[in-house]
């Protein structure tokens, strides 16, 4: 079976005026269905850049990045939007919408897609919030929640659309040991249940235990892929 994320010989540079800053150098890494891959590496090694390319948030032009069978190198906006819709994102800062309640925030993932009634959307959102242990905080807005609670809402938001891929960039960075461990454990359980693949970037060595595979990015080059 072909990998769900198939990156081959990816090169990427930031262009700053005349100067090109190479960030990713000949990166090749396949990630299979249901796999949980953690990417670590020193600061500035290009991890975030890699995630944004795989998630269809940044355009790369050299190499091959196939996600869910679609080529993202030199892709159209439509293809990128398509990939974004099938991907769940968990950001370092929770990035919840301040004006919406937890339930409404989670429901935003479902609002893009047609074919669901408002009632169905809210039910799914509630179910997902229960699954992350936030069933009693449905109608709280982000500034009425703790950091760990917000991150759990944001996990619910990423997973409620049943994405095939979850991308997370240092999801535990703003959390203490206990709530960080809790968050990734929930993430792992839900991903395993739905068969989603996870690519998670972290400096946090305490959570490496959830991974099926750990890769290290150093100065734009993959070690032990």
């Amino acid at each position: 079976m072909s990998p769900i994320i198939d990156v081959r010989n990816l090169n990427f540079s930031f262009i700053n005026g005349e100067i090109a800053l190479p960030v990713l150098k000949n990166v090749t890494i396949p990630i299979h269905k249901g796999e949980i891959v953690i990417m670590t590496g020193p600061s500035g090694s290009g991890k975030t850049t890699f995630l944004t390319i795989v998630g269809g948030l940044r355009q790369a032009i050299d190499g091959s990045v196939k996600v869910l069978g679609q080529q993202l190198i030199n892709s159209t906006e439509q293809i990128k939007v398509n990939i974004r819709q099938q991907t769940g994102y968990i950001f370092q800062q929770h990035n919840l919408l301040k004006s919406l309640t937890a339930q409404q925030n989670v429901s935003m993932t479902l609002e893009m897609h047609n074919g669901m009634t408002e009632k169905e959307r809210l039910e799914r959102a509630t179910e997902m919030l229960r699954a992350v242990g936030m069933g009693d905080r449905l109608h709280h807005k982000p500034d009425q929640l703790s950091g760990g609670q917000r991150q759990r809402v944001s996990i619910a938001r990423a997973l409620v659309g049943q994405p095939k891929i979850v991308l997370a960039d240092e999801p535990t960075a703003s959390l203490d040991k206990q709530s960080g461990q809790e968050a990734v454990t929930i993430l792992k359980r839900l991903a395993k249940e739905s068969g989603a693949s996870i690519l998670l970037v972290t400096h946090d060595y305490r959570i490496l235990n959830i991974a099926d595979r750990v890769v290290e990015l150093e100065d734009g080059v993959i070690n032990n892929a």
């Binding site: 998630g55 948030l57 939007v81 398509n82 974004r84 819709q85 099938q86 991907t87 994102y89 950001f91 990035n95 919408l97 301040k98 935003m108 993932t109 893009m112």
Partner: peptide
């Protein structure tokens, strides 16, 4: 703009 960028990352056009 951060909220809009978040929604864009989620696939909003």
């Amino acid at each position: 703009r951060h909220e809009f960028a978040t929604l864009k990352a989620m696939g909003y056009k």
